[in-house]
Amino acid sequence: MKFKAFLTQDGVNLLDKRFLPSLDKIGRTCHLYLTRDHAVFLHNLIGGDGVQSVAQFKKEVIFRDYRISSQNEDRIAFAIDVALLHRALRSAQAIQLQSQDDTAAIQIKLVKKLPAGSRNPAPFLTFETKGLRSAVVQDVPISKPFSRADVAQLQDALDASQDLPQTLVQVPDLSQLQNLVDRLKNVGELLMLSITQYGDLHLQVSTSLITVGSEFRKLRVLGVQAAAPSGDQNLTAPTRTEMAIQRGEALSVQVSLKHLAKSLQCLLAKPDCAFYGISPQGGCLTVIFQFFIPGTRLTDKSISFHCRLPVLDTGSS
């Protein structure tokens, strides 16, 4: 099992400024899954009941001189502490800056070493930064690489997580949503989230003392859509949502506000737009983030990032 590659400058910036801060907020430990073509950071896909997140990069986005080999179709997966990874990356970057030399590149590779004071070799992801005058090596401890069965399980979970909801609505202003969700956290713990095929997104927190809700209407819809019934603008948001559910033109799920707030930490990765959808049987709430190719409005297909929030109760069933 071998892996080594150089980090590109774009890759370093992308990870350091955007993705690692965001992934760290979702969960301290994540799985890093490397294949011949992709590097994928995953949270809670196996053996976790929190927010699942999948950040997938084409290898060229982050790496150059990418070499990977394993007896399991060149696939390697292991668990890694996001904060440690971020620290190593930042200090490697600092050394690179100090050397003031473009040739100072950061190489990462998988190694097995004897940790100080131990007799058993342990696996590390090692960062090697060579400047003109100095070379610095940093070892980030990782879990034992996954067995063939574990990798297969991870791949299955990854495939399953790609299922798209039938209807997706685009939330135009994520920071507004984040602000709302942060404040709703003080009111209650559970949130009812409904999405209609007309492009309405309705959030509601309800306790025995208070009901607070917010409705975003006329959002852009992807997938199955329907025309809004005429005359419904005079109804209250809860009534409108209820009627849409009865007509089979909306789905509603209950999620934890804590999970929703966590998924909104993906904003740190600076996505250009976000879509919300509920999977057909109300199994989960999916949030898909899109990134544009810099300077354009075209989706950058080499990066994909999405979250799935566990559903606590299917409101519509």
């Binding site: 709302l180 025995s208 003392l209 208070i210 009901t211 607070v212 809700g213 917010s214 409705e215 975003f216 209407r217 006329k218 209250t236 948001a237």
Partner: peptide
Amino acid sequence: FPDVCTYAEIR
């Protein structure tokens, strides 16, 4: 805004 509405009912 006509298309964004926040509402609350306090007992």
